[in-house]
Amino acid sequence: MSVVLNPSSFTGSDNVPGNSYAYCIDLQTPWFLSKGAMIAYYGQVRFSALTHGLQGGLLDMVARRFSAPMYLGDYVVADGFGKLILGDRGYDINSYDLDDGNLTIRQSNLLAFEPGLSLNQSIVPGFLTLIGTGRFLASSNGPVMFAEPPLRVDPEALVGWADCPSPSHHYDESWITGFVSAGARRFGVQSGEERQFDFTGAGTVLIQSSEKVIDDSSLVRTLENQIPGLSPSGLQRINQVVSQQLQQS
């Protein structure tokens, strides 16, 4: 029979005992949470949307710490006191501590973070940057590996990177040759064998042990925001690419 949990089962903030897929926050101060991440809690906890209803100290905290307007609807503030249990569709959850650091992470992997960290939109679509000192929680499809540059990473396996420059795109030479010779018929078909993120310089790269993006809704939103600025010919081209990709999928 499985162990039955109660408030005394949790010591501080850590993974639920014997369970890498759930994490318990010992809530004493407010946290930013990904919407829908809460699966249970003990105590008195309030959840507030970032888009409306905030007042006083919470409103000031969001204004100072959350500089990613595109993602306001994806997070809430949890405040109060208790044991707050988080999960993310059965993916692994780990906590990480930044000490006056700078880390960029895929938005769909960022589960929660303390307000000692400031959140900014990254110049890389679909990623966010955490700056400052504090703890954050990240989910991943399998355990996370840490690697030093220089290296190239499958875009779908990339979780994030810390204290190193943003990556550039690298395209495999054989893929480029095939792309050109095929008259661009393969446009839109990309994998880690064809396209990689190229990291250079000092720092650490976080890689999940799977080539599966947890969720691409943030990238879709980024693309949607670019559509109003496209010309009719640009929209037609995008429509062609989407149609090709749907047929191949």
Rank of each mutant, 00 (worst) to 15 (best):
V3P: 08
L5S: 03
D14E: 15
V16Q: 01
P17Y: 08
Y21C: 13
Y21H: 15
A22D: 13
I25P: 06
I25K: 03
P30G: 12
S34N: 14
M38E: 15
I39H: 09
I39L: 11
Q44N: 15
Q44E: 15
R46M: 14
R46Y: 15
R46P: 11
F47V: 15
S48A: 14
G53H: 06
L54P: 07
G56H: 12
G57M: 13
G57D: 15
M61H: 07
V62D: 02
R64C: 08
R65I: 10
S67G: 04
A68K: 02
M70I: 09
L72P: 00
D74V: 00
Y75H: 08
F81T: 00
F81P: 00
K83A: 08
D88G: 08
G90N: 05
I93D: 03
S95P: 01
S95G: 07
L98F: 05
N102I: 06
L103S: 06
G116H: 07
L119P: 11
N120Y: 14
N120E: 15
V124R: 07
F127H: 05
I131A: 09
F136M: 12
L137E: 02
P143V: 13
A147T: 04
P149D: 02
P150D: 10
P155A: 00
P155E: 03
V159Q: 00
H170E: 01
H170I: 04
I176F: 05
F179V: 06
A184V: 04
E193G: 05
E194Q: 03
D198N: 02
T200C: 08
G201Y: 02
L206A: 00
I207D: 02
S209R: 03
S210T: 04
D215F: 02
L219P: 02
L219V: 07
E224A: 09
N225F: 09
Q226G: 06
G229I: 02
S231M: 08
L235S: 00
N239Q: 10
V242A: 07
L246Y: 08
